[in-house]
Design a binder for these strands. Sequence first.
RNA 1: GCGCACGUGGCGAAAUUGGUAGACGCAUUGGACUUAAAAUCCAAAGGUCGAAAGGCCAUGCCGGUUCGAGUCCGGCCGUGCGCACCA
Length: 860
Amino acid sequence: MSRYNFKETEAAWQALWAERRCFAAQEDARRPKYYVLEMFPYPSGRIHMGHVRNYTLGDVVARYKRAKGFNVLHPMGWDAFGLPAENAAMEKKVHPAKWTYDNIATMRAQLKSMGLSLDWEREIATCNPDYYRQQQAMFVDLFEAGLVYRKEASVNWDPVDRTVLANEQVIDGRGWRTGAIVERRKLSQWFFKITAYSEELLTGLQGLDRWPAKVRLMQENWIGRSEGARAFFGLAGRPDRLEIFTTRPDTLFGASFVAIAADHPLANEFGAGDPGLAAFLDECRKTAITAEAIETAEKKGYRTKLEVIHPFDGSWKLPVYVANFVLMEYCTGAIFGCPAHDQRDLDFARKYGLPVTPVVCPPGEDPGSFAIGDTAYLEDGRAINSRFLNGLDVAAAKRAAIQRLVELGVGEGTVHYRLRDWLVSRQRYWGCPIPMIHCEKCGIIPVAKEALPVTLPDDVSFDRPGNPLEHHPTWKQVACPRCGAPARRETDTLDTFVDSSWYFARFCSPKSERPFDPAAVDYWLPIDQYVGGVEHAILHLLYSRFFMRALSRIGLLQLDEPFAGLFTQGMVCHETFRDAAGNWLLPEQTKKTIDGAIVSTIDGSPVVVGRSEKMSKNRKNVVDPSVIIDAYGADTARWFMLSDSPPDRDLEWTTAGVEGAGKFAQRLWRLITERLSALPSAETPMPASIDARCEPLRRVTHKTIAGVTDDIEKFHFNKAVARLYEFVNVITEFVGTNGAQQAIPGCNWALREAFEALTRLIGPMMPHLAEELWRQLGHGQLVMETPWPEADRALTVDDSVTIAVQVNGKLRATIELPRDAAQSVAESAALAEDAVQRALAGKPPRKVIIVPNRIVNVVA
RNA sequence: GCGCACGUGGCGAAAUUGGUAGACGCAUUGGACUUAAAAUCCAAAGGUCGAAAGGCCAUGCCGGUUCGAGUCCGGCCGUGCGCACCA
């Protein structure tokens, strides 16, 4: 029995693909293009199973589309800047650049062993000065276009990584990488003006019909559009005014107080002359901002000595509170409270004895007697107690109130977005230097384009905490480009999410002297299919959508949406193991004893098996892809990744599953290679007449072609796998299990057809095995150069159909009928069934429902 | 708290979108081959009653619509994800 030697075979085909430059892409106006991309990896050391899944999914698409005749671009690169390199530098005394490039070399070799159809000639690394030089030029252009600015703001500070973070990188009040509770710090920082595109980024989502609805919704919520009005309340006895935002301008006559944030300028001003207020402000600032803290924190206010005047009535004064639930970060940091129609305001009013005036009357209630109890009324109704608004419904009252605000010059209708500008400066070394110079005389001056790139100095030390660029003895000393006086180079570097916001466009012309070659980006963009983890639903995917718009503004390309199709894959999970002391154990440090118990291989002690979780180094529930590829081969690892679980769901890694995949590869090998001698040659045309006994096999072949094609188009790879198993089972049954002698003698041509279809259909999933089988089948051409098989429609539709027969909705029999048989034929055939008659128990059917080619339901 | 998903055998999952629930795989059990094991092949298998034929019960729970519901509607329960003092 011959065994498939995956080790030699995989290496040989990989070498041949590389030698023939099979995956090198070139623009070709005559062919339809297809750009498929997986999110590029951070070179952390070695690839993990998440990478294997991600790149396998993308590679199936790439190879399939190539076979379908598309000109496919499928590149790979490295998201190479980032903090782990600096941490490694501190711990292992190795330079971040060396650490990073060593990791890239390791991971590149690992990826190559997977047999991915990647165009390695386009490989890029974001830490390469050739790459970040372009990014620095973009930064300067964006600065000049007003899309980059520097301002002092209250920002998120991660005390562990010792850098600021963007809003998107703070999750539940904690840094996204470190998990440390972020602090608020007032710092001068660089921002990208993503808010200039709030509306566009929101409406653009509607056109992304090949994105998961979930991701679109998340971005929609993140942008957080709310329509309402801004209104000005005059400060009693002062010339200035207080600006508030509300979504309910129709309830202005129900106002009973105004509340401002503790960080509001007015709060600070009054705190100076009011020790009680000063103490309250202190208390507010100390309150943590984690989810739990917010959940439990009591809603508190402090009544200031300030009063404001109602925008609609100069004689109506309202008290001003400082309240701990009003956020300076959101909108103007000031609200008006309408207790009758907002639950939080109601609680507040009850607590501090403020009036509760209903101004919206529910339908059916008497306006004269309607009163609010413990629950605010939030629904629609008619305006009451609201002078000129009385009688209007909520929507009309909103419009009328806004109109009056405008007439009186005390406000206007407005749209507010939750999205904040993107804070991009980081106080770290291993990132793209921000090409700016601070001159005492001239201010902030961009580095001249000719002087780019501003490269990172090599001679840095990580001996003390903080930014090594800041500590460098000479690097930041520079002459002002404008006046020549001694000036200071910007020592902040860019958020690595900037690097990843345009890498996919750089792949179109990775060696261009300009950021992009216009012909190349015109040809390849947008990306037809992007594949990656859902954890980037907001961060990377939103930033990139913004960045393409910003780059279009400065004329580098013309593109709004970079990712026409998006697929978010699930995680790779594995059981977790701990020993008696609670220490995590690697899967290979555990074994199953004869009686089924799991014990440690270190000391034989019992192991506690925990629930399956995402593979992570912390929990040690990881399996090294290289170990698997060495033991089972890349094709087997890929096949397992594709079987069983739908790609968008989490996948449970099991040794048994991988072994099953390996067995299938061997089974395929035997099935085909053991019967080669019986087959007609590869060039034999279809015989003029084919033995009727071959038809069942031919039908299954063509149905499988049609089914697998449809499954791949829809990303239902697990179903494609199941279908191929079924196909193999059918072929096996057809040929018998003891070699070729049992096959129907006249059907060798049909058998070759089945084998060839099978080989081509597994090509995207198990490319090496497919190539080898294709060669064994006598083909000189590569299977990856062979067009995708076409199903013969005449063979995918059966002449007869199995119809279910129900009595009162319960299955009683099945009948075989010619396709599209007359309803009367179906009815009499159904009624002729014994089981049907038994179920009817002699009663005549009241009604017979017939769905052609599907079902007959007899109603008794 | 708000929003969005999802709940199907021992396990991963299918189910042509309202029409034969459990395809396919894993694990399991029996058998063949073998001195034996591995590998391979064949077969069984949702639960339950039954010797069998066959019946009944089964898609988280409770209702509803329908000739017919895993699929649609309403209400619970549970899990996961996102956002969260959002004005």
